[in-house]
């Protein structure tokens, strides 16, 4: 059974007097542990699809099952709880909280659970070790480079051990070296830690790091080849 199972998924909304359908009748399966890249021109529906998979947005129709649970039926509150447990989101511009240190940013998802301080410290240390930033734990985002910020964002996304990672242009704001190191890290998370990763990118080199690349255009998948 696919980890992500999408059937006849449509998302439409009205903008002013116009009806917009960024995704129409889309079907897709993603097995557990796959690193999937979504490519396509601006407005093709990649980010909309990513947001739907992450439970950030809700579909207009269709079925969207993640690990056997149809999240299309969840209320906003249930979706928020589901995200807190099952999803890690990595943003292009990192979206770290500027007033909190790297350690405190990584701690944010853990504060939603019932872990003790010592348990939290252990998990944060493990995440920091994984992204190789233990020596920057008490630095604030403004004191880190872009690549380091994105590593903190990845540590924050994985610290609570979600099965699913979604990444929206995670290397879009980084230089080539930093981008390569982030992509290697994502590959490692999929291969060694069994995370299912869906990544939106414009960068063909970033897409090459993924196990499979899908192309979207006008809300439709235009091919679905296994790479």
């Amino acid at each position: 059974m696919a980890f992500i199972s999408i059937r006849s998924l449509t998302k439409s909304y009205t903008k002013g007097k116009t009806s917009v359908t960024p995704l129409e009748n889309l079907s897709l399966d993603v097995p557990q542990g796959e690193f999937l890249a979504l490519m396509g021109p601006s407005g093709s529906g990649k980010t909309t699809l990513l947001n739907l998979i992450a439970g950030i947005d809700t579909p207009s129709s269709g079925q969207l099952e993640i690990n056997g649970r149809n999240i299309a039926d969840l209320s906003q509150r249930q979706l928020t709880q589901w995200r807190a447990t099952h999803v890690g989101y990595i943003f292009q511009l990192y979206h770290l909280v500027p007033v909190l240190s790297a350690y405190e940013n990584i701690e944010l998802p853990l504060l939603l659970g019932k872990l003790t301080k010592a348990e939290r410290r252990m998990k944060i240390q493990a995440a920091l070790d994984l992204v190789d930033l233990s020596d920057r734990a008490h630095h604030r985002p403004a004191e880190l480079s872009g690549g380091q910020e994105q590593r903190v964002a990845i540590a924050r996304a994985i610290v609570h051990h979600p099965e699913l990672l979604v990444a929206d242009e995670p290397t879009g704001d980084l230089d080539r070296d930093s981008a390569d190191s982030i992509l290697t890290l994502l590959q490692q998370l999929a291969t060694e830690h069994g995370k299912t990763i869906v990544m939106v990118t414009h960068d063909p080199k970033a897409a090459q790091a993924a196990h499979r690349t899908l192309h979207l255009e006008k809300g439709q998948l235009i091919n679905n080849p296994r790479q």
């Binding site: 992450a54 950030i56 928020t80 995200r83 807190a84 989101y89 944010l108 998802p109 939603l112 924050r156």
Partner: peptide
């Protein structure tokens, strides 16, 4: 606004 949205995406209500 974006920071609040990020915290919501993490799971804060």
């Amino acid at each position: 606004i974006r920071e609040m949205a990020t915290l919501q995406s993490i799971g804060y209500t």
